[in-house]
Amino acid sequence: MATQKTSPSRIDPVTLEVVELIGTVVARYHEEYEEAAAEHALTGAQARLLSLLSLEPLPMRRLAQKLKCEPSNVTGIVDRLESRGLVERRPDPTDRRVKLAVATEEGRKVAKSLRESLRFAREPLAGLGEEERVVLRGLLRRMLEGDGVV
């Protein structure tokens, strides 16, 4: 089956519907993420930062890039998470001028609990077969490749 290209000035109905569906998925995800964060007495931004740090230590500037916010905002978020014992600052072993934010053991536990409490991420996807989830993952990665996200 050949795919048909549309001109940039005209968006076909299927593309419009896909865009609306993606918007609905994103809105539902953010809503549930905020609720899950609140259950852990975190803001959404704190939860996102903690989730990032549970994967790897990151410099403050890189965190700001990933969260798409100002470095000063990241400093405030890290301060609050640090006061709760969820994050700590360490010098970067490759460049002592750079500070890394690192999730503590407790921070990794909270991040794991947060991920596990996201029903939206589990329930609808559970209705898809493994092959369908693999196809969906591939399509989403392909959509994001141009943005350097994947």
Rank of each mutant, 00 (worst) to 15 (best):
Q65M: 08
E132P: 01
R119M: 00
P13A: 10
E31H: 15
L144E: 09
E17N: 11
G85E: 06
G107P: 06
D79P: 02
A45K: 04
P59N: 12
L55K: 04
R142T: 10
E145I: 00
D12N: 10
L136N: 12
H40C: 10
D95P: 02
H40G: 05
A36D: 02
K68E: 14
L63A: 05
A101M: 04
L139G: 06
V135P: 06
V135L: 05
A41M: 03
E39H: 03
Q4W: 12
S72N: 09
E82I: 04
V74P: 01
G138Q: 06
Q65R: 11
V149I: 14
R84M: 07
K5R: 13
E20G: 07
A126S: 11
E35W: 02
F120R: 04
E17H: 14
V74Y: 03
R133L: 08
L58R: 10
L55F: 14
P124M: 10
R28N: 13
K66A: 14
I22A: 15
E105P: 03
D79A: 12
R141C: 13
L139E: 11
R122N: 05
G138C: 07
E35I: 05
A37I: 07
L63W: 01
D95M: 08
L140V: 15
V26F: 10
D12M: 00
E70H: 15
E105F: 05
V25Y: 12
I11E: 13
R119D: 02
A111C: 01
D95W: 06
V74F: 00
A36M: 03
L52Q: 15
A111N: 06
G129S: 13
E123T: 06
L55N: 08
E17R: 15
E34K: 15
D12K: 06
E105Q: 07
R108N: 14
L144W: 01
R133V: 09
E56Q: 03
R84Q: 14
R10L: 14
S9Y: 06
L86N: 04
G148W: 02
Y33T: 07
A111V: 02
G127K: 11
R10C: 13
R89I: 02
S9F: 10
R89F: 02
E123L: 06
V98A: 13
E105L: 05
G148L: 03
D79V: 00
S83A: 14
D79T: 08
T24D: 05
S113D: 13
L114V: 01
E17P: 01
G127Q: 08
P71E: 09
R80C: 00
L52T: 09
R61L: 11
R28L: 09
T43G: 13
R84H: 05
D92Y: 08
G107T: 06
G107N: 07
E88N: 00
G127F: 03
V134Y: 05
G107A: 14
H30E: 13
P93K: 03
R80D: 02
A36I: 00
K112D: 11
E34Q: 08
P59T: 10
S113F: 01
V135I: 14
C69I: 02
P59M: 12
T6D: 11
E130I: 01
V135A: 09
L136I: 12
P13M: 09
P124C: 02
L67E: 14
L114S: 06
D147K: 10
R122F: 10
L139F: 04
D147W: 11
G138K: 04
E105S: 11
S54H: 05
R119F: 00
E35L: 07
K112T: 15
A121R: 02
R142H: 08
R142F: 13
G76D: 05
R62Q: 09
E105M: 08
I22P: 07
